[in-house]
């Protein structure tokens, strides 16, 4: 009987083998990352991919020639800024409704080409409010945002910023006094978004399409998703800034697929998710948006 049991155990013995695979690791691809909007100078980040098993850092591509075109008219050349690692031009700011093209030339790579159009219409938040609820004994923020959808096919990204109070604690008087505040991105989650919408991996923004509320208003509620380290989570913030970005379709697909890849990484049953790219002869994203904001102060 004992031998029988041992043999039964052997049946489900699985084995692991480290294997060398014949994957194409020879040529790193150039990676262009550029998200542009009318409120910032035009800048892009250029690096190269690395073999999946490489442990080292991602390598920045320096010394490339980066030309920018607006509606096919040459605007100028972006120059590498070693303090930010971006290629940029401080006089160039994208304009709404304009089409921008980037062409990157660097020896050893095929020319990298990408283009995007900054959406014309500004997205609109018609209502925004903040309240708080008691969840598992902790007071937490809850946010409500109503979007006025624009005509046609649209894609949005919702981002929440908050001013975090910097407090100084006086041990003698045992009183905390606000000495400053800093602007941070605030993490949140929601339960009422539909399957097509997706929270980005950093949990501080949502991308969504309007295909189920086209031409209508759409109200979303968000919950505070910060870690529950302190007893009262609703006293550290003074002001919230709701930002609604009207983004290009490429941007939506990129953020959505990137987030999806992140979320299913440990799910053995899910099919792998390739990340969307609109970069010809390379990887990454070159996309544009315009943004409207609404400020809500906490009393």
């Amino acid at each position: 009987m004992k031998k029988l049991l041992i043999m039964v155990c052997v049946i489900f013995y699985g084995c692991e083998t480290v294997v060398e695979l014949d994957l194409d690791s020879g040529s790193p691809k150039p990676v262009l990352n550029g998200i542009i909007n009318p409120d910032s100078t035009l800048s892009v980040h250029i690096s190269q991919s690395k073999y999946i098993l490489d442990k080292g850092p991602f390598e920045i591509i320096r010394g490339a020639t980066v030309d920018v075109y607006e509606n096919d008219r040459w605007l100028g050349e972006l120059l590498f800024d070693s303090s930010t690692l971006f290629y940029t031009h401080e006089d160039l700011k994208p304009k709404r409704g304009m089409r921008y093209s980037i062409e990157v030339a660097k020896e050893g790579y095929e020319n990298v080409i990408a283009e995007t159009t900054i959406p014309v219409a500004l997205a609109s938040i018609s209502e925004a409010s903040v309240d708080s609820v008691l969840t598992e004994g902790l007071k937490r923020f809850r946010f409500h945002v109503t979007i006025e959808d624009l005509p046609g096919e649209n894609y949005y990204e919702f981002v929440l910023y908050a001013y975090l109070k910097i407090l100084e604690y006086d041990r003698e008087t045992q009183v905390s006094t606000q000495i400053d505040s800093i602007l941070v991105q605030f993490s949140f989650y929601t339960e009422d978004l539909r399957a097509e919408d997706f929270q980005t991996s950093i949990m501080t923004s949502y991308v969504l399409s309007d295909n189920l509320f086209s031409g209508k208003t759409y109200t979303i509620s968000f919950h505070d998703s910060r870690a529950t380290l302190s007893g009262n989570l609703a006293h550290d913030y003074s002001t919230f800034i709701f930002a609604l970005r009207h983004v290009s379709k490429d941007y939506y697909l990129y953020r959505r697929s990137q987030a999806l890849q992140f979320w299913v990484e440990d799910n053995p049953f899910a099919e792998p998710v390739p990340v969307h790219t609109n970069i010809r002869n390379g990887l990454g994203i070159f996309a544009g948006y315009n943004q409207s904001t609404r400020i809500v102060r906490i009393k």
Partner: peptide
Amino acid sequence: TLPSSRYIDYSSVSALLFN
């Protein structure tokens, strides 16, 4: 389906400033 390489995403590019 296997990944052949990795590359930096837009949200993480600023992290490259930290060695």
